[in-house]
Design a protein around this nucleic acid. Structure first.
Lengths: 359, 359
DNA sequence: TCGTGATGATCAAGCGTTTTAGCAATGTTT
DNA sequence: AAACATTGCTAAAACGCTTGATCATCACGA
């Protein structure tokens, strides 16, 4: 025998301004009782249903009760009914490794929030098992969809379980085309833009220090360089393309070779190389941009904006990648049919390339 | 009249290897039906209840059905029953601004995961309204607790609504002591460690370029510097403390003043200043560490590890802050009674200070 | 033959919402 | 005054799961 405990009205201590953490949170039913209406009515008021007919007076009574009791809807219960949550999952392989992942998160979070979704994140640091668990967790929480992101642009295998949800690859793509929606940076356009900064600086003989490490960026940025030269009517000279490991050491180490090429303009695969190159050039008594104009890639704020002189570079649009990923997931952007959607890498001009004063 | 649709057994298409996204996810009941048992039994099997008595045979049948159907428990339903979710909320004021916030997220996420919790993050970028909404959302999702973090160490007002949940301040603290649990970096110890690196290098006359901007870091790092000197029996000389804006420009700009002090060792408020100082010293034809030993603070990887020479510095333990915050929230660490718990800032020695060969 | 104890599984209530169908008043037409 | 609309609100089922109470067997002594 269960007694329904229905001492309606006059509760014991009704008008204490509830605010500190209670053991049992206030429920819809309590609000309903306080307002002297049914839970259905309260629900209708809360959700501002269009075709719900509620007297203005009642509506007020309910609102007062809600405020009075400090009621918070239980999102879990809501979700249970509706079947799908207001979550978007984001699995990242390297939040720790770079500031980049942070930007993806940030972009995704902003965009998700804009559409009433919250971000559920999981950092896998590349660990496959963790990844599987993370995805499982997200599936169990009935996320609206999953963003699968990598900290650097690369091809990736799509984990089996990911397919149980709606998903979008961010900053990575599936090798088999058409296998997955994806959004990636437009490396070629970026390479073109980087080169164009130097072209606009009046340079015709431009070296490119590429990375030794295979990656879409390596191919794309080179292609962009070639395209920009061609568009400017400058023949491509393989002699002017060097290669080095894409970090400070690599850039520093490439200095000597670069100087042999007798150029006054160089485009580096990334900002870190440019940073190393700065040191190398300085040691050779050369000044930037007068003796050598330098352009980087990635726009790593901490580096690029604060080198002396500040480095002209091209931005990797991580924030945009995150945001675009969310939009694509929610079907707000033009869905990609076969290939990944490419996001523009905008040029950021600073002082490492002198402005051209046409002779 | 609702007909219960109970065509038990022989469903239409039972043995299709389910895997691709279905409209309606598999439920407990479906598993139960497939295994020919009650939902209670399935639940017991899934949760491996200790004192549940289930025949091994039945257990297997259930497990098979689960695998067969590709069943995923609905975490929302689970949570509804249990009353509290396996979420920990993290509100951050600046994921975008620095790589630091990323580290806090990472540490929190790892530690949370370790205890079976998932991280629900919200980036407020300092916006109070967003913050309120974010906290509300977390409360509605019945998070276990909330980590409230800032991207740089500072005092902060505790938002009213935050008190509705269990919470811990991370990298910030309430001005009124005892008002909130908090975990922050140990700036004093950090300052001591930084200074000690130089002391170990054999230096006795050590300059400190402090920040002009008021902050716990400014006071703490100075105090640590004083403490280290005192411990080494070196009188504190106010002449040796300079001040500059804590960025590259500031460090660069401080070069001249520094050189007037006739010192061969300097400890900078942060790595960015050290980076600027590197440039200034170089322009004066001075070499590091021979003419000037330099120590930074923060250990911003991209900068410190890759300057030439690599910069000795002290780490801001953001990862640990996130992890410790979670532990404190879950009551696994010694709770702070009155003051914030301080996390150690470990020294990171690189080549910007020469090793001391005692004469 | 009747308790008594295990053992293996089910019943059914309940978690906090949403939502559809419907009831009881009123008001409005004829 | 009968018929119909409109308004304001509620009952109750449903969402997918957990869990304490209960039940049916079967085995074992006495």
């Amino acid at each position: 025998m269960i007694s329904q405990e229905k001492d309606s009205g006059n509760a014991a201590t009704p008008d204490v301004p509830v605010s500190k953490s209670r053991a049992q949170p206030v429920t819809l039913r309590e609000v309903a009782e306080a307002a002297g209406v049914s839970t259905a009515t309260v629900s209708l008021v809360i959700n501002k249903k269009k075709n719900a007919r509620i007297a203005e007076q009642t509506r007020q009574r309910v609102k007062d009760a809600i405020r009075q009791l400090g009621y918070r809807p239980n999102a879990m219960a809501k979700t249970l009914v509706s079947g799908t949550s207001r979550f978007i999952g984001l699995v990242a392989d390297g939040v720790a490794t770079t500031p980049f992942a942070g930007q993806i998160i940030h972009g995704a979070q902003d965009e998700a929030w804009k559409h009433g979704y919250a971000l559920l994140i999981a950092n896998t640091e590349g660990n496959r098992d963790l990844e599987t668990d993370a995805i499982a967790m997200m599936l169990e929480y009935k996320v609206r969809g999953i963003l699968y992101s990598t900290w650097f642009h690369r091809p990736t295998a799509v984990p089996e379980t990911l397919r149980e949800a709606d998903f979008v690859l961010v900053n990575c793509f599936s090798p088999e085309p058409g296998a997955a929606r994806a959004v990636v940076p437009d490396e070629e356009q970026g390479g073109r833009s980087a080169t164009e900064i130097l072209l606009r600086g009046g340079h015709r003989r431009i070296a490119f220090i590429n990375a030794t490490t295979p990656a879409p960026a390596r191919d794309g940025r080179l292609q962009g360089y070639k395209d920009a030269l061609q568009a400017a009517g400058i023949p491509f000279d393989p002699e002017l393309v060097l290669e080095a490991y894409p970090d400070q050491e690599g850039g520093y180490g490439a200095t000597e070779e670069l100087l042999k090429r007798n150029v006054a303009a160089v485009y580096c695969y990334n900002d870190r190389m440019a940073m190393g190159l700065y040191d190398g050039l300085r040691e050779n008594g050369l000044s930037i941009p007068d003796d050598m104009a330098v352009v980087g890639f990635d726009n790593q704020e901490v580096i690029a904006a604060h080198l002396r002189p500040p480095l002209s570079t091209v931005s990797l649009p991580h924030y945009e990648l995150g945001a675009a990923g969310v939009r694509m997931l929610l079907g707000l952007d033009e869905a990609s049919t076969d290939a990944a959607v490419k996001i523009m890498c905008p040029a950021v001009e600073r002082a490492s390339v002198a402005v051209h004063s046409p002779a």
